[in-house]
Amino acid sequence: MDLMEAQQERMSKEKSETLERSDENTSSINSQMSPGDRIRMSSLNVYYGNSHVLKDLNLTIEDRKITVIMGPSGCGKSTLIRTLNRMNDTVHAFKLTGEIALDGINIYSKEVNPTLLKLRVGMVFQKPNPFPISIYDNVAFGPKIHKLSKNRAEMDEIVMQALKQAALWEEVKDRLKANALSLSGGQQQRLCIARALAVRPEILLLDEPASALDPGSTAKVQELMVELKKDLTLVLVTHNMQQAATVANKVAFLYNGSLVEVGQSPDIFENPQKKVTEDYISGRLT
């Protein structure tokens, strides 16, 4: 934790050189931000060509909470989470209207660099996608590119810290030079989490991170998420009800591209307000 804060501070000093453009951006600051919100989506619409994938979404993501987006497959949850760090930019015929504000800045505004955005908003994917290089190099990949360390010792520290945060350190500390592909699926996914954590994001997006894992690994990833929310803001996409119920602070239920219901965690499961939500939770809708 101290290390992380030190890092954070060092980087905020470094950044000062880079994008002191806040004045230009004030225009897009959403005055309705409540203090604890990190991300606010307002009238968000997403299209792929002619198909309307997300319809008029309004949702806020709170600081250091786990926000779970759930819904049946094809409802647009993956699209939603990928728009939060602009992973969809390169998708053919992708179009977005409305606004996604990160700390009051519209991340789709011209001033925001999509590459830098990803430093603040990290992402973990459905299938583990470690690079076919050593475990150490996987975690060090981001920090190396972004030159986050001055020397080897610092890099070792970053790698160790990230692996510890991802609860993988104990399992791999003796074989950091081994190829990442030699890890089990669950370990690979935690390695990907460590890789994402190593560049010190403030927000971590997890797109069904446990869908390809066995129950044991799933439980570990879940524990990890709860642990991580002490330091980070998490957004989780899942179709696993139990997982949602276990980790969520806030739940957004997405159906056919529309936000049907948003609620705090136990409430929405015990007392859903809408019929569709109830159907989904009770398993009548998949």
Partner: peptide, 23 residues
């Protein structure tokens, strides 16, 4: 090149050229 690997790189904040050169 698997799209997953390229996306992994992009999510880490690599520029297009860095994705090309490193992945």
């Amino acid at each position: 090149t698997p799209v997953l690997l390229k996306e992994g790189g992009r999510a880490l904040g690599l520029t297009d050229w860095e994705i090309s050169r490193k992945i």
